[in-house]
Design a protein around this nucleic acid. Structure first.
Length: 420
DNA sequence: TCTGGGGTCCTAGGACCC
DNA sequence: TCTGGGGTCCTAGGACCC
């Protein structure tokens, strides 16, 4: 049996922990650049505010209902997430951290008849340890655990925990679940499924394998099989290294100067390099892209991208920054107003392999040593304490961040605020 | 005026090999 | 006029997830 623990309105719940006066107020958390709504408290959901709505379309609603709107604070959310997962860890040695606010737990070592009680204990523990409310669904497969989780959250009488013990029990609840609410069924497929008469999760469970394989694909067939109580998706307790690493941002203002964009991509390359080293990898390719504001219908549009092959696989920040600037020189065109840029690292290899190039000699020890030193300094004294000069100091490209909460759990000065 | 960021997997088709 | 069988690798595009 698998438990799926999912934090309720996670970012909004994090914001409330250290600002308890927000508890009854509707809360919205915005995306980078303070653009779209990416998290809503229950009160905000009840007001009918959709996920992803651009905040500038909600000005009146925000004033009318005194909605608290804030920028996102991922430093805080990541730290709270760690604490939630740590609380859950005491219930099972087999835990897969699926996303910042979700975990799968194997609970096979708990007796079947106690599962509801175990779920309630988990919920209580997380609440006590972190003040974050959760919904918990248990089922024989991940997909059924997801369904159980949905029921736990939607039907208040269950107190946030719901168990689907078997495929037979699933058969009773699946007719009430719309097919688009099944994990793995998105917009496109639900449309297509409905066109062949598959409307509910039950219909999908009962659907003909051949039809699913022929008209759809093997991924959807697996989903249907999981609904029958046969596991197709295994627990992945060890997070595999990412195969691509992306760092991109929309700019706070539109930019026209090449050297400003160079500073931005130097910063992206730095961040990507940090992620790369953290997972113990090297990259062979660095792609760069830029684009104008796609929402502005009156502006001439341009979007460009290019891939720079690195002479050898590397995680050395200066080498990646240099590649990013090379890329920008290739694709930058004068006369446009740029709104977004980013870099993508690919050709990811483990850093235990050091294949040399014929004409490009590298002192791995020296490079590795300096990166190590830089990472240590930045861990101790804060991000960007030590950085390459190409990033600059003017921050002209930085996204908007008008109202971010404090880093109550990770930054010394902010922790003092909490204590006070 | 204002519209996010970061990932994965599968499939089909083309190019190539023997 | 007739024209095999069995593979791999790469890429672009489409679907999905949070």
């Amino acid at each position: 049996m698998i438990a799926l623990v999912d934090c309720n309105n996670f970012y909004a719940s994090c914001e409330r922990i250290f600002q308890p006066w927000l508890r009854k107020r509707p809360v919205l958390v915005l995306s980078s650049n303070d653009g779209c709504v990416i998290a809503r408290s229950q009160e905000a959901k009840d007001l009918g505010i959709p996920m992803g709505a651009p905040i500038h379309t909600l000005t009146e609603t925000v004033i009318k209902y005194e909605i608290y709107v804030c920028s996102s604070n991922f430093t805080l959310y990541a730290d709270i997430s760690k604490r939630v997962m740590s609380a859950l860890g005491s219930f099972s040695p087999h835990i897969e951290v699926y996303s910042i606010d979700e975990s799968f737990l194997n609970v096979d070592h708990h007796p079947q008849e106690n599962l509801l009680a175990i779920g309630r204990q988990m919920r209580q523990s997380v609440l006590e340890w972190t003040d974050v409310p959760t919904g918990i669904g248990l089922g024989p497969t991940k997909t059924l655990a997801k369904i159980a989780n949905r029921i736990a959250k939607k039907q208040k009488q269950h107190g946030g925990v719901f168990v689907i013990n078997s495929a037979e029990e699933a058969r009773e609840v699946l007719p009430s679940i719309a097919v688009e609410d099944v994990w793995g069924v998105g917009r496109q497929w639900s449309k297509k499924l409905k066109s062949v008469g598959i409307v509910s999760a039950y219909d999908l469970q009962q659907a003909d394998d051949k039809l699913l394989r022929q008209k759809f694909n093997v991924v959807l067939l697996r989903t249907a099989t999981e609904l029958r109580g046969i596991p197709c998706l295994t627990m992945e307790e060890i997070t595999p290294a990412n195969k691509t690493i992306i760092a991109s941002r929309s700019f706070g203002t539109q930019m026209t100067k090449e050297y400003d964009i160079e500073e931005a991509v130097a910063s992206f390359a730095t961040r990507a390099a940090e992620k790369l080293r953290k997972q113990g990898s090297l990259a062979l390719y660095l792609s760069v892209f830029v684009r104008t504001n796609i929402f502005n219908k009156f502006q001439e549009q341009y979007s460009g991208g290019t891939t720079v092959a690195l002479p050898i696989a590397t995680a050395y920040t200066p080498a990646l920054v240099e590649a990013a600037r090379t890329g920008i020189h290739r694709i930058f065109r004068d006369g446009y107003s740029y709104k977004k840029a980013g870099i993508v690292l690919s050709g990811i290899l483990p850093d235990t392999i050091h294949q040399q190039a014929l004409f490009h000699k590298v002192n791995y020890q020296k490079e590795g040593g300096s990166m190590n030193a830089m990472d240590n300094v930045n861990a101790k004294y804060g991000k960007g304490t030590l950085r390459v000069g190409a990033i600059g100091t003017r921050k002209v490209w930085h996204p908007k961040l008008e109202k971010s909460s404090k880093n109550y759990t990770t930054r010394y000065e902010d922790i003092l605020v909490v204590k006070a």
